[in-house]
């Protein structure tokens, strides 16, 4: 049996992001990509499950960036057994979560995994829709905000984090789709030598897919955040400070 992990690349925000002249996209030439942080946790959780049960881990991704290989090889170097890359004509568009799920669902069904693990959310999927959408398309049980898993006969026991630190333990029939919030351990370090070894010795399976017809809302404008968070320390006697506060409020038309 296998555990499928979905990996997605997102722009690296350590690098400065710029908006393309079109105004509806990032300047892709200056963007570099990293694996969505939560997906890293999904992979780590899958690897931990593998260590406990001996399942094979298959990483799956849609290559929207042209650079997915790096992420897949890294996953192989960390201990995944197979890597599947979905390729198609996606250049110049961000796939919506719904479109992504649509592409992934048939491929995953084919893999017939015991579990599908993905990050609970991503910078372009802040409401964490990937796991539920996939679950719906596959008609498998699903849940999100998972912080721990354990496989048993025909079920997976998961621990979810609720508000205020309250934990919820659930049992889902497998196959199931899980949105991982945090793996039980920090995602492991993979030495560069191992990644290079994987690049030499393993192959990435490719699956050609049709570009989905989007029914998602159309993007009209992308904007950089306004410079914010300017703080000013007010000093002096209490009456000076009060005076200054009034001035500020007045300047902003609040008083």
């Amino acid at each position: 049996m296998t555990l499928a992990v979905i990996l997605k690349q997102v722009p690296d925000v350590v690098e400065e992001l710029a908006i393309a002249p079109s105004g509806t996209d990032l300047d892709r030439d200056s963007v570099s990509y990293v694996v969505n942080e939560f997906d890293e946790h999904a992979l780590e959780e899958a690897l931990l499950l593998r260590e406990a049960t001996g399942e094979d881990v298959v990483v799956v991704g849609v290559d929207t960036t042209g650079e997915l290989d790096q992420a897949l090889y890294t996953a192989l170097a960390k201990g995944a057994q197979r890597a599947v890359k979905l390729v198609g004509d996606f250049e110049g568009s961000w796939l919506s979560t719904r479109a992504l799920a649509g592409l992934l669902a048939p491929v995953i069904r084919e893999l017939s995994p015991r579990l599908v693990l993905t990050g609970v959310q991503a910078p372009d999927d802040l409401d964490g829709q990937l796991a539920p959408t996939l679950g719906a398309l596959l008609d498998w049980p699903h849940t999100g905000v998972v912080v721990g898993t354990e496989l048993a006969d025909g079920v997976v026991r998961v621990r979810k984090e609720l508000w205020g630190g309250i934990m919820l333990d659930l049992e889902l029939a497998t196959p199931a789709v899980l949105g991982i919030q945090a793996a039980r351990a920090t995602p492991r370090y993979v030495p560069v030598g191992r990644v290079r070894q994987a690049m030499r010795e393993s192959t990435i399976e490719e699956v050609e897919v049709e570009t989905p017809v989007e029914s998602a809302p159309k993007l009209s404008r992308l904007r950089a955040p306004e410079a914010a968070g300017r703080a000013e320390m007010l000093t002096g006697s209490p009456s000076d400070v009060a005076e200054r506060i009034l001035e500020i409020l007045r300047a902003r038309g609040l008083y």
Binding site: V34, T186, P191
Partner: peptide, 22 residues
């Protein structure tokens, strides 16, 4: 230890990951 994937100091791990990326 590093090549075998033994657990390393988390701060060291962060540093190495950053080094290989940036």
């Amino acid at each position: 230890l590093v090549f075998a994937g033994d657990e390393i100091d988390p701060n060291l791990q962060t540093a190495l990951e950053s080094l290989s990326r940036y």
